[in-house]
Write a protein that binds this DNA or RNA. Structure first.
Length: 322
DNA sequence: AAGAGATCCAACCGCTCAGTC
DNA sequence: GGACTGAGCGGTTGGATCTCT
């Protein structure tokens, strides 16, 4: 039996989302939370497939998403997780809370795969994507396998993180700088989000992610706008019942505001209310004082019993041993 | 300056899984 | 237990942008 389409083909809009659509979706989710995607198009009036709405939210509008500019740590982690898990991008993304599976998948396909192929051609095949293992037919099966292999995963991740030590600066000041850089890119506070990572190469790349730093005169309004919507969401959810699109809510004391510019000049000021991901299912974004992988590392080394990891990664109370 | 090719990424498609009746 | 439905996942594609010649 053929599965019926999730939505009628007629009258369903496709292609890039407009800022107006984004706002409608964001406003709806502010009020109702993500979920029940089937109802979203009808309730919002969006001429979009429910799947499209969900995808737009999870991959672009969801708060706490970091775009582009993959760090060496993230890169290494992705490579090793891919080797362990195969192309299970959602599972891999679960270890990188700020990244979407789509983002990781794209990054893998456009950067890492090629890198590894080049590395393999160069002789070393240690990082060979071993994930050409046959995909299991059942999520339950692979989750069980994952459970079974959890220690192997931890070991491999330790190797990944340890090998970073060869890349990373090793002096104290350099480590501090590294931590600061990571924090700068991770601690996307509403006020300063646009200025994150200004010194990284990728920040000046052509990717849409970096465009959030550009002025409207430098970029089209759309990318800037959606980036700001995403940023706006970083602070949205604390106040129940408040609608950001209304922009009428008074900000809580001391909160910062982010301005969302639309189209050719109409500007909607969105008051950011602080960071609370009320409806967020992924783990919360790490604070600016943490390195981006510390949560993973904490997990990674949770059941080990030695203690030189912090010397390597600058993360306190983390064990690290071989 | 302009055209061709390469690159990147947002979005779509089709499938499977899980929950409900 | 089977049918149905919603949600999620991974593969793929279309088009915008960048780079090279």
């Amino acid at each position: 039996m053929g599965r019926p389409p999730c939505c009628d083909k007629e009258g369903v809009k496709k292609g890039p989302w407009t800022p107006e659509e984004d706002l409608v979706l964001v406003s709806y989710i502010q009020d109702h939370g993500p979920g029940n995607w089937r109802a979203v198009p009808t309730r919002t009036g969006l001429m979009r497939c429910s799947k499209s709405c969900r995808l737009r939210w999870t991959n672009y509008l969801r708060p706490g998403i970091k775009r582009g500019n993959f760090s060496d740590q993230e890169e290494k982690l992705i490579v090793h997780l891919q080797a362990l898990l195969g192309n299970r991008w959602a599972a891999i993304a679960s270890y990188l809370p700020e990244r979407t599976d789509n983002d990781i998948k794209n990054y893998w396909n456009t950067h890492l795969k090629r890198k590894l192929q080049a590395a393999a051609a160069g002789g070393g095949d240690a990082a060979k994507p071993a994930a050409q293992r046959p995909a299991s037919s059942s999520k339950g099966q692979w989750e069980r396998r994952l459970q079974t292999d959890i220690n192997m995963a931890r070991r491999a991740l330790r190797e990944a993180l340890t090998s970073l030590d060869d890349i990373k600066p090793t002096t104290t000041t350099q480590q501090q700088q590294l931590t600061k850089d990571a924090a700068g890119s991770e601690g996307v506070t509403v006020a300063a989000a646009g200025a994150a990572d200004s010194d990284s190469p990728a920040a000046s790349s052509s990717s849409g992610a970096s465009l959030s730093q550009c002025s409207p005169s430098e970029t089209g309004p759309y990318v800037l706008t959606t980036a700001n919507i995403s940023r706006m969401l970083d602070g949205w959810a604390r106040k129940q019942g408040g609608r950001a699109s209304g922009a009428a809510d008074s900000p809580s004391s001391g909160s910062s505001a982010s301005e969302v510019s639309y189209g050719g000049g109409a500007t909607t000021t969105i008051r950011a209310l602080g960071s609370a991901y009320e409806y967020e299912r992924k783990p919360p974004v790490l604070g600016p004082e943490q390195t981006p992988l510390s949560a993973i590392e904490t997990w990674l080394f949770a059941d080990d019993s030695t203690s030189n990891a912090h010397a390597v990664l600058g993360v306190p109370s983390m064990d690290y041993h071989f």
